[in-house]
């Protein structure tokens, strides 16, 4: 993947939920590059989830000009639902476990043709191989978060949209997720939201701060590191 190529180009994007008087997100301009790892940081209601869901074409009314204005270009073309399904996958802050076992959850979400051995290897990688036959809904918050990440990986998309990937996880699970994402940075584009500035600084190569649905700060992580070490 070429890190200089533009992945998403967002211009004058506005999205509002239902009949809300104020848009949940209002971005003038945002460019996101291939193979980057970008963190969106900000308080609740700052528009992080809305932005990630828009980049997965997951929101109601995304094609309705009354609710969603502006332009999203994907690799130079208008971003469509088909493109979203083919190239991106979104992870909820609190993932929804489908009915069935841990292994079945992986099988359901795996791209057709995925080898069963790869699924077992994935379970090993996320530390859930011993729980493969347990109901997925019996997993703890951290385990569910790891399983959701594994589901995203077996769905085999090159862009991961992660909403608070370490929410409701303990320190050990958070570390495991961070290490996994660290490995994935070389192969995938990772766009994630987080409340934890420290987590963003450890993982992302660019940090974008959102407040009230707009970008209030956008910087490379090395600058953030310098400023924080001062």
């Amino acid at each position: 993947m070429n890190r200089d190529l533009l992945l998403f180009e967002i211009d004058a994007l506005q999205y509002r939920y239902g009949c809300a008087p104020k848009p949940a997100l209002a971005l003038d301009r945002l460019e996101l590059r291939e193979a980057s790892c970008v963190a969106f940081v900000g308080p609740n209601g700052s528009g992080k989830t809305t932005l990630l869901k828009l980049l997965n074409h997951l929101l109601d009314g995304q094609d309705d000009p009354k609710r969603c204005k502006g332009r999203i270009q994907f690799r130079g073309q208008p971003f469509t639902r088909t493109m979203a399904r083919r190239h991106t996958v979104y992870l909820h802050q609190h993932p929804y476990m489908l009915a069935g076992t841990v292994l079945q959850n992986l099988e359901i979400c795996a791209r057709p043709g995925f080898d069963r051995h790869v699924l077992f290897a994935m379970l090993e990688r996320i530390g859930l191989s011993e729980k493969k036959d347990l109901p997925a809904r019996s997993l703890s918050g951290g385990e569910a978060q790891r399983l959701a990440l594994a589901r995203a990986l077996v769905s085999d998309r090159e862009i991961l949209l992660l909403d608070e990937p370490t929410a409701s996880t303990d320190a050990a699970s958070a570390l495991r997720i961070r290490n996994l994402l660290e490995e994935l940075k070389a192969q995938k584009t990772i766009l994630f939201s987080t409340h934890h500035r420290r987590f963003a600084e450890q993982l992302a190569d660019r940090i974008i701060e959102l407040a009230d649905g707009t970008i209030c700060n956008d910087r490379r992580n090395d600058l953030v590191d310098q400023s924080s070490s001062r």
């Binding site: 997951l58 399904r85 909820h92 993932p95 359901i108 995203a152 769905s155």
Partner: peptide
Amino acid sequence: IDPRFRETLETHAI
């Protein structure tokens, strides 16, 4: 039903 159910199916293109 929890909207995350539909969104999970959609995002994974089940």
